[in-house]
Nucleic acid binder design. Structure first.
Length: 388
DNA sequence: TCTAGAATAT
DNA sequence: CATATTCTAG
């Protein structure tokens, strides 16, 4: 069981030998279907190894015990008002998100603030001025596809905290002499530090999301709402164990590491577009992927592709690390550069709503886009030589 | 097990 | 928006 519903992680786990991958939170439906394992084992259809069977056996027993015991307990808790608020909201979300049966809650992929991303964040603060640097404006300035206001808020909070911590630390060490003064925190630099400028846009790294580069995160979102989680059918058919592939799904493009690369190339049919996975033959006890959902999925994907104009094309190509050769991928990594920040801080109100992906305000969106296009989409170090 | 860093709730 | 709380990867 894992809360990680990243497709590569799931497949990685299954290929590594997991018989079943349940995405948390599991539902009663999930439990109801566990009997199939006992059944299959009975028929001797499982891959042998006494060891693994025994493990399975016990884990199955455990599961049913848990069900028997904890079910009343859980409902008790809920009556006592105690299920956490997060659980509640997830439940509510599930109602909206179609089938709501055995599939997992769609959790946002975790954003990792790479140095480049953080630098752009710092630049935003610098340009906007510390007092004007609120999440919305920062987000606007940073102009990073897929980045959400919540991400910025959270980061801003942490950033301010670290500043405060640093200040306090400085105050305390003031008396003792200068030795301790230059002990700055690792990646949080003082907002207006002069050295910062030279660091900006050097060593450009890419924003990554746990499991996916950000653009892929976008694709992933669309996948998540339409593809069923792996179920018994697909799970217990996957008997192949590939020890060279691992379940690690963190992609850090800035380090030229593609953990799931071997997996992707070894099993091209299991690519992110879900081709070959939408074939539900053999699924038992889990809903089939309806035509409607498939349609939605295709639409979603097409939409994304058609969106290439907004500067996403380079991003979109990148995550589709499926049929390309490694070399090509590395090339793509190198070309994978964030769109530049908005050149000038938006004049207060004009573009207030100009969210990169804003559903509303299409005109404003286009303005932003046009402006950026006009100034060239990609920025390199040289572009900023004379910038300051 | 603990915590930094991120998401989510208030 | 700021701040508090919770979650979770490492």
């Amino acid at each position: 069981m894992s809360a990680d519903n990243d497709w590569n992680t799931i497949l990685g786990g299954l290929f590594k030998g997991a018989v079943l991958y349940l995405v948390k939170p599991i539902t009663m439906d999930d439990l109801k279907n566990l009997w199939q394992f006992a059944f299959i084992k009975e028929r001797g259809n499982m891959f042998a190894a006494d060891e693994s069977i025994r493990t399975e056996e016990s884990s199955l027993e455990n599961t049913s015990d848990v069900r028997a015991e904890s079910q009343p307990h859980i409902s008790e808790e809920r009556q006592n008002h105690q299920s956490t608020k997060r659980e509640r909201s997830e439940e509510q979300e599930n109602n909206q998100d179609e089938t709501n049966d055995g599939s997992a809650a769609l959790k946002k992929p975790k954003l990792i603030w790479t140095e480049a991303l953080h630098n752009r964040f710092l630049q935003a603060i610098e340009v906007l001025g510390f007092d004007e640097a609120h999440p919305k404006k920062i987000l606007q300035y940073m102009n990073v596809p897929g980045l959400k206001k919540e991400n910025v808020s959270s980061h801003l909070q942490k950033y301010r905290l670290s500043l405060k911590r640093e200040q306090d630390a400085n105050k305390k060490t003031m008396n003792r002499g200068s030795t301790a003064l230059h002990v700055a925190s690792h990646h949080i630099l003082p907002p207006f530090s002069p050295q910062e400028r030279s660091l900006q846009f050097s060593n450009l790294q890419f924003m990554t999301v746990a499991g996916q580069p950000v653009a892929n995160g976008l694709v992933q979102e669309n996948l998540n709402c339409c593809l069923p989680m792996p179920s018994f059918g697909s799970a217990n058919l996957l008997k192949h164990v590939d020890s060279s592939s691992n379940g690690a799904s963190t992609i850090k493009f800035d380090q030229q590491v593609l953990h799931n690369e071997p997996l992707a190339s070894a099993y091209p049919e299991c690519n992110l577009t879900g081709g070959g996975i939408t074939d539900n033959e053999g699924l038992v006890g889990f809903p089939q992927l309806g035509d409607l959902e498939l349609e939605q999925f295709l639409e979603a994907e097409t939409d994304l592709l058609n969106n290439g104009d907004c500067g996403l094309e380079s991003l979109l190509d990148c995550p589709k690390v499926v049929d390309n050769s490694l070399q090509e991928k590395q090339q793509q990594e190198e070309q994978f550069v964030l769109p530049g920040p908005l050149q000038l801080p938006p004049p207060a109100k004009e573009q207030e709503e100009a969210d990169v992906f804003g559903a509303e305000g299409g005109t404003e969106f286009n303005e932003v886009f046009t402006m950026e296009k006009g100034t060239g989409q990609l920025f390199f170090d040289e572009d900023f030589d004379g910038f300051w």
